[in-house]
Design a protein around this nucleic acid. Structure first.
Lengths: 349, 349
DNA sequence: TGTTAGCACTCAAAAGAAAGGAGTGCTAAT
DNA sequence: ATTAGCACTCCTTTCTTTTGAGTGCTAACA
């Protein structure tokens, strides 16, 4: 920060020009090119001097002697920060809607990933929202056949879960009714994190001889709450990375695409993003900044959306460091808004 | 077929030797190599003559003059057919178990894909079983809140589906009870494909003023039955294709990996496989034979497994034409057996 | 003091040239 | 029918040369 402000106006302009040019072409940019590109009419020699300074300060570097300059991570970081400040006050005017209506959440999310990928030409991911501090809305046990009952659990946000429970005995209808009553009167509307061991013990006690069944049900609830479990991640356009030579040698391509197939690393990324929220929920990780080592040669831009009732998810794009940050951030923001809106207005299902 | 038998014993041996050698090395194989490799002691010159014949017959070809020979699709086909015949009577002895127990079907399938990939070093896929001619086991409607009820539908094989239904009115408990009774007495144990329009009309009539709700429920059932919808495909090891230079130029790699990400093409492949069952349910597509154009430079080997009650799914591997067919078929068969067994013995969930 | 023209120098990438070698097809001898 | 021998092909590898974009530095200039 302190260092940033110490850059002269002219150096800033030159740095910005270098970066923008490099974003477009992907080639190291030299002094002659710049002397035409910038509005300030300077000879290439002058620019060379400034560039040498910028290199000393660590904002740019040469891939080899006698090549033009390329932005370093530090350079990108400064650029992105400037970008963010500029956009701060700018009101994003309503874009055309990107998403079509669809009645299942997962369809919407998968579609979101696709739209994002086709709009940006980068690899994208969308995580399903996780039920943070959710409430239990409704429980229902039903006998399926002699030895099985199914427990249906509806969470706030109308997320439905089920679990088949094996019981040794056949339960009578009235027993079931009683159990349902017991569970619902106690648990309905209860935030999940308030279901304590004490409460469970009390319920079991009240269930009498059927305490075992109640135990199973609560186990099922516990299982469902376990967040990691069902964070689904939808991806699209992983193969877009082939469009960027700096990422598409076998080694890198394999690593990145693996990450997209296995999804575990993406999940980590999402977790990280959700943990450290920031700037309108838009975060930019450049190179090593990303919480996952696989992405060390990429930039990752993420945003958080909210499907009401504290259910948060992440959308993100992964691309080369020389990505079109401006466009990406704009697209991401638009999509974020649309996702935020979709649940509030649309009485889905 | 007629042509195949016209190959002399010696030509067959040579062809086999060529293919096996090529499978190992990936390099075109020349006459000198062969004259050592084969048990029949022939000079390279003799072998050259035979090879020229084999080339005329279309079983092998040269990538360029003055290179060794490579098997053509036709050559591979003959080889695989021979392999199949040999294996016909061979009893596969019990292998070590590959799969660990897991309580959700989808975990098992995902794991199956992984195991397959790590055992073969090819890209793999596993499709979830589709509920062919399934039966409806149980239906339950429950009131969730004022305007929503949830319909839980259990299918044979304990597949559970739910759907939230918006109702304008609040239904009384006894109404719900009556509807549940009505639906279950009529529909329980009924094969899904026997739910006809006539039946639906009759049910609606019996439901009286609540015919609308019944309609919604049956819509939900219809939606669930729609097969394509929920054929999930689990993949693993897509990046294994980078191990085979003939598939890992940008163009091919991008296409193949895209197919693995989008999954639509894999779904087509599965559909095709399930339609035309064969040889112990093991099928080999070489190059152009595959029903999907993307795989024209690959070989695809698939097998069908059955999770009881006619629920069939497909496991398959995709790799270069010069894949180790023998090992792949063996591994596939083992896994197929394990999947077949898992449901029959294991009272899962 | 900041700017610029000029020039020697560097080095990656492209193009060319030469050598090597695996493999073939054909002919003639066994 | 088999094989040794030889001329020929053409891919692959290696080395060299050329090219050209770009730099840093110095000296002149405003």
């Amino acid at each position: 920060m302190a260092v940033d402000t110490s850059l002269s106006e002219r150096k800033l302009i030159i740095l910005k020009a270098i970066i923008q040019n490099y974003l477009e072409t992907g080639e190291p940019v030299g002094s002659r090119t710049l002397s035409k590109y910038t509005e300030l009419n300077l000879s290439s020699a002058t620019i060379r001097n400034e560039m040498a300074d910028l290199e000393d300060l660590g904002y740019i570097f040469q891939p080899h002697t006698s090549a033009g300059r390329i932005p370093s991570d530090k350079g990108y970081r400064l650029y992105v920060d400037m970008l963010m400040e500029e956009k701060e006050q700018e009101i994003t005017e309503r874009e055309d809607a990107m998403l079509q209506k669809a009645d299942k959440v997962e369809q919407v999310l998968q579609q979101a990933a696709k739209v994002l990928a086709s709009n940006t030409n980068y690899a994208t991911m969308v995580s399903s929202p996780i039920n943070n501090r959710n409430t239990l809305k409704f429980i229902q046990l039903s006998q399926v056949d002699e030895e099985q009952i199914v427990a249906v659990i509806v969470l706030g946000g109308n997320v439905i879960k089920n679990k088949i429970i094996e019981v040794g005995e056949t339960l009578s209808n009235e027993t079931l009714l009683k159990l349902n009553m017991l569970l619902n009167t106690t648990l309905n509307g209860m935030p999940i994190d308030q279901i304590t061991l004490g409460l469970i013990a009390r319920l079991k006690e009240q269930a009498g001889i059927h305490s075992e069944v109640v135990g199973h049900v609560l186990d099922a609830v516990a299982e469902i709450i376990h967040v990691e479990d069902d964070m689904k991640i939808y991806t699209s356009g992983a193969t877009n990375i082939f469009k960027y030579p700096e990422l598409s040698d076998k080694q890198s391509a394999q690593e990145i695409i693996s990450a997209f197939e296995e999804k575990q690393q993406l999940a980590d990324l999402v977790t990280e993003t959700l943990a450290s929220e920031d700037n309108h929920g838009i975060q930019v990780y450049i190179g090593e900044e990303a919480p996952v080592k696989t992405m060390k040669d990429c930039s990752v831009v993420t945003a958080t959306y909210e499907l009401g009732e504290g259910m948060k998810g992440t959308i993100g794009i992964i691309g080369p460091k020389r990505m079109d940050y401006e466009h990406v951030m704009k697209t991401l923001k638009t999509l974020q808004n649309e996702l935020d809106a979709i649940y509030n207005k649309d009485p889905k299902e």
